[in-house]
Amino acid sequence: MSDQRPIYSTVGMPRTLLIALLLIGALSIISLFLGFDAYLSDKPNSMTKASLYLLLGTGGFALIGYMFFRSKILMEKVEMIPQLEVVTTLECPNCGLKKIRPFQQGDYLFKEDEECTRCKGKMVVEKIYGREKPK
């Protein structure tokens, strides 16, 4: 339970999204081709047409990039169940020595636990809390 592990399929992105991205990619390539074609042609208004096609093509690729990274971020968010790292703070009532260690099963608040390394007294569980695991 203590490890942060994926619990959801991490295999790529949804199929429909992949198909849509491929379609947009194909159309963008065609658009770029038309743009360069118009740019090199001598027909009137070809520059305006070329700009529009090139804009459409690059826009398509920008959209693909955006969708790809967005879906990746969303999937990363969905994949993990938040798992906290639980720690126990112990304090010696005699000498005030403090110690923080990972939570162990059987720990509870105000439990008399392990021996104090300084005065050999009994350390007491003063605090138990969970904190986000460092990424």
Binding site: S2, D107, L109, G130
Partner: peptide, 8 residues
């Protein structure tokens, strides 16, 4: 996690 380990 909490009830398996017995954490507050």
């Amino acid at each position: 996690q909490a009830f398996t380990e017995g954490t507050p």
